[in-house]
């Protein structure tokens, strides 16, 4: 941890993209679970995620980055699923 003499006055963050270093996943009390067979790859979850917790590789949803997922549940709410079956469900953390 930094000591006060090592800090930038005014708490100015002098590097871009530093939020990547600040892992917020520990705030979570509910965890999204991806059910691949119900996923239609609409990427609504990626679009609506307020952080960067939906991992998309070559245009496809591949799962969650739990280091940044705070468990807000927006992805599960927006997920249209397949034939009424959600591809993302929220479960209590530690279940």
């Amino acid at each position: 941890m930094k000591k006060w003499k090592e800090l930038v006055p005014g708490a100015v963050v002098l590097e871009a993209g530093s939020s990547e270093k600040f892992k917020t996943g520990s705030w979570r009390s509910f965890k999204p679970r991806w059910i691949e067979e119900n996923c239609i790859q609409c990427l609504f979850c990626w679009l609506y995620c307020p952080d960067m917790a939906v991992k998309v590789v070559e245009g496809k949803m591949t799962g969650f980055d739990y280091d940044y997922c705070k468990g807000c549940g927006v992805c599960a709410r927006e997920c249209p699923g397949k034939k009424g079956q959600k591809a993302i469900v929220m479960e209590p953390e530690g279940k």
Binding site: M1, K2, K3, W4, K5, L7, V8, P9, G10, A11, V12, V13, L14, E15, A16, S18
Partner: peptide
């Protein structure tokens, strides 16, 4: 000093500083 409009050096003002660093900033 650290102007936001220096676009070559992006930076952020007003970060969230919690229990781990707030007191160090106040000491400064």
């Amino acid at each position: 000093v650290n102007p936001l409009l220096d676009l070559e050096h992006p930076k952020s003002y007003g970060p969230l500083i919690l229990t781990d660093l707030y007191m160090e900033f106040k000491r400064l």
